[in-house]
Computed example of a mutant assay.
Amino acid sequence: MLNLEQIPRVKTLSKEAFLRDYFRPQKPVVIENFIEDWPAYHKWNLDYIKQVVGDKEVPLYDDRPVKHDEGFNEPHAKMKMADYIELLKAKPTKYRIFLWNVLKEVPELQKDFTFPDFGIRLMKGLPMLFFGGKNAHTFMHYDIDLANIFHFHFEGKKQCILFSQSETKHLYKIPHSLITREDIDFNNPNLEKWPALKNAKGHVAELNHGNVLYIPEGYWHHMKYITPGFSMSLRAVARKPKNFAKALYNIFIMRHFDNSMRKWKGQKWIDYKNEQAILRTSKRVTT
């Protein structure tokens, strides 16, 4: 079992308390009652989304291993939203939607929520929706811009596992990438195969309808849908100079270098990175 502590939960949270107790010390928190005044709190469910955007074609992703010939964030399939929602309801599926821009794809949904005042400036052009079916999950990853994230959950239940960047040395990070080894099951890891995980200290929470999870900047996160549902994320830029510099490096250098190496070396590059994840993690743990 992983060494995970429950993320603190509060009913409500003032701006001052958020900045003092969670943002400045960079600690995660779940706010249980924060968006009851949003129309989205009462309206947003799978049926409503199907009604509003059922005819739109949406990109779908699953948990297949990364391949050298797949572009950055290239979808694995496409489907009309109405058909996808029917699939979510009918049976477990690994297909997920992520980084679906509300403003770009469905501007009318913006009427259903407001940008909250947490005391930090949110990027108002990037409200993103995420959907998943029962047991669908993401790889353990951190966001390319190391943003502060506010994750608003609608319908169903979702489990979130978090690790700070300080725990990276234990997580079998893939070099020149934003993910860990894809064959690690973070819900039931084989600690004999992945012994460094015994040293990792993380956080866990279950999100229900209306809950808001604050994910501090650069935190690793693994999301698993316990039941079909969806969430929306709002984000703010990384404030720590080290994280902001790392975000710039990821966006303008690392991503393009990795794509170039995939084209040049093909699958050998992917295999090399997977091997290096084990070698580098083992070296860090033993030194």
Rank of each mutant, 00 (worst) to 15 (best):
H141M: 00
H141F: 06
D143V: 10
D143S: 09
I144C: 03
I144F: 05
N148H: 15
I149G: 07
F150V: 03
F152S: 06
F152I: 15
E155L: 09
E155W: 10
G156I: 07
K158F: 02
C160N: 09
C160Q: 14
I161V: 14
I161H: 07
L162V: 04
L162Q: 05
S164C: 08
K169A: 10
K169I: 12
H170W: 13
H170N: 13
L171A: 00
Y172T: 01
Y172M: 05
K173W: 14
K173A: 15
K173G: 12
P175S: 11
H176W: 15
L178S: 12
I179R: 12
I179G: 02
R181L: 15
E182N: 04
D183P: 07
F186Y: 15
F186C: 07
N187P: 00
N187L: 15
N188L: 10
N188E: 14
N188C: 12
P189L: 12
P189C: 11
L191D: 11
K193E: 15
P195C: 03
A196Y: 00
A196R: 00
L197P: 03
K198I: 04
K201S: 13
G202D: 01
E206W: 10
E206I: 13
E206P: 00
L207P: 06
L207S: 05
N208W: 06
N208P: 06
N208K: 15
N211L: 01
V212S: 03
L213Q: 03
P216F: 01
E217D: 10
Y219T: 02
Y219H: 08
Y219I: 01
W220N: 00
W220L: 04
H221M: 03
M223D: 10
Y225L: 08
Y225R: 09
Y225S: 13
I226E: 12
T227Y: 06
G229W: 05
G229Y: 06
F230K: 07
F230A: 09
F230E: 08
S231E: 02
M232W: 12
S233H: 07
L234K: 13
L234P: 11
L234A: 12
R235A: 14
A236N: 01
V237S: 14
A238S: 08
A238M: 01
P241W: 11
P241H: 11
A245S: 06
A245F: 13
L248T: 05
L248D: 07
